[in-house]
Design a binder for these strands. Structure first.
Lengths: 217, 217
DNA sequence: CCCGTTACCGTACACTGTATTGGTGGATAC
DNA sequence: GTATCCACCAATACAGTGTACGGTAACGGG
């Protein structure tokens, strides 16, 4: 098999899954494929384009979700799908929103959510749709990003309470002891660990409710 | 003046403003300061810590906003302030949400928004506050990120219509001509360029309205 | 006087993205 | 059958990166 953009993207994704975006280099991909580093540049113009390629492969998985007749179901499905793939490929969240996603599959999911949102009550004009899309996408990007970095720090410091107290603890507890951040302190100390998916879903419907019930103009 | 974390952070910010995060290297900062590269590691443990330093300096500017008695006014002020500084320091949006922000000034703005949100109607329990904070921050992060990358691509392709048609045009118009993305096509072709700040404000109030008017549970 | 601390500096290493230059082998055209 | 092209492949080279490591010179307190 002669090597192709697809194969390159696939192994690049594998490596990025394993070692993160920082641990991903052209040379390592090439070595993994058993070829010289420069071979890749016959298929890809840049490292950036390689990343775009990987991103669109992931978007393809998002685009697989079923289209529901109800607009809200479709939006929910797409949102949860992007959360799911972002948790599978954490580097995806680093790229999400960082550059315009114009690959065919990215456009497909853009189309799906736009079409669904255009049928929501409260979005009447094209301007409304534009704004609603912006709000929805902003939330998804930010929420996924937050969750992934949270998960990363949890993993690096160690999940258990003790390890956490040992690493972030000294600095953070000292900070909170100053009394300058009472609300944050209450959140950190008394806050329970909410289920991530449920929180995502909850906030997502919050945003959707905000969109459908236009308050002013 | 003997060199200090503050001076390092300041010149690092200057360089990042001018050439972006990719154009920022330890060696360039050192050269700008007229010292050897290794000097910086006497004040900073990592490049990452350097970035954290820069981030917290920017958070200091956000923390300067006045506290209003009305919770909504405070939240709006903080949100717009972070948007403003992100537009001044575009690299900030690349870091936003990418790692936990635990600097003193970051904690200060966290405290301010948390305290304000806790007084909003509809957030009664600590869990509610946690979720509301999540939703708000997710939106801010995503919205700012989106706007900055939009601004970047607009600048790189050229603002005027002609240059845009020349760069992205060929590929995008070809894609849209396929008819597979009708809604996106309508958005791209017939969509007017909405005022960015107004859109941000609009969507922000949408999110806040969603938070205050709890639908279920 | 010594001695620890603080500010400072240079060299070196492993690694990055990519420009450049070249060499195959087989298909096609005459 | 020979020439020509082209997809595929490989090696070398360069400028730039983060940072580990080992050092020097001034100075203030005992």
């Amino acid at each position: 098999m002669p090597l192709s953009r697809e194969k390159i993207a696939a192994t690049a994704i594998r490596l990025a899954d394993a070692h993160g975006l920082d641990g991903l280099s052209v040379r390592k991909i090439a070595k993994e494929l058993g070829v010289g580093p420069m071979r890749l540049y016959d298929y890809v113009i840049n490292r950036s384009e390689l990343l775009d390629l990987m991103v669109d492969v992931v978007y393809a998985r998002i685009a697989e979700v079923d289209q529901h007749s109800e607009w809200r179901a479709t939006v929910l499905a797409v949102a949860h799908a992007t959360r799911d793939v972002a948790l599978d490929h954490e580097w995806f969240s680093d790229l999400l929103g960082g550059r315009p996603h114009l690959g065919p599959h990215a456009l497909a999911v853009g189309e799906a959510t736009a079409a669904a949102l255009s049928q929501a009550p409260g979005v009447r004009s094209l301007d409304d749709l534009q704004r609603a899309l912006g709000a929805l996408n902003a939330f998804i990007i930010g929420a996924v990003r937050r969750e992934v970095t949270e998960r990363r720090t949890a993993r690096s410091t160690g999940t258990d309470e003790a390890a956490w107290q040992a690493s972030l603890g000294p600095y953070l507890t000292r900070m909170l002891k100053t009394g300058r951040y009472p609300t944050v302190a209450r959140l950190v100390i008394d806050g329970v660990h909410l289920d991530a998916e449920e929180t995502f879903n909850h906030n997502l419907t919050t945003v959707l409710d905000g969109i459908t019930s236009r308050p002013r103009t």
